[in-house]
Amino acid sequence: MRRDARFYRKLFASTFYISAFTFGGGFVIIPLMKKKFVEEYHWIEEDEMMDMMAIAQSSPGAIAVNASIIIGRRLAGALGVLISVLGTVLPPFLILSVISVGYTAFQDSRIVGYVLRGMQAGVAAVVVDVVIHMAGGLLRKKQIFPLLMMCGAFLASAVFGVNVVMIILVCGAAGAIGAGFTMDRAHGKGGRGE
């Protein structure tokens, strides 16, 4: 693949297009990127793409942005990162710029107020639905430690108003220790303990 102007234009156009038409968050964008870069352009192998997407999901921040960073780097280094990130960020940036101007203009309108007030109940329901779905998945695993951690974190955040980052750091550390522990055990069982 030649890294000429045409290549960069194609990279920008595809990230821009995917970002502009992806409703429903980061998990939707991954299959779309796979389709484009693996199946259509053959720029990346399937296995490598899967590993790259795992990294995108493991890193903090928006999954779509993370995916475009790692794909851009793999295809064309720093310039690739710049172009694919621009392509991914520009559509929401432009759309929200227009909306926020409209929002400010219409915020005091009664009609818009009624619609927004109704939608606030819808948003609350959508978020509660997501929580039920995620917590249900955790409950089905029937492990006591993650459940305790979930309840503790909820109390800390909702009742005691503990800083969100504090909770993340404490639980992340607990997760890392837990992961280290299970890995040691796994290694021990396989007879490869140090």
Partner: peptide, 21 residues
């Protein structure tokens, strides 16, 4: 290790989305 940390964080992430909810 990264995957391990992420798994450990999952309950906390759910809890905080719940608090925001």
């Amino acid at each position: 290790i990264v995957q391990g940390i992420l798994n450990g964080l999952k309950p906390a992430v759910i809890a905080m989305i719940a608090a925001s909810g």
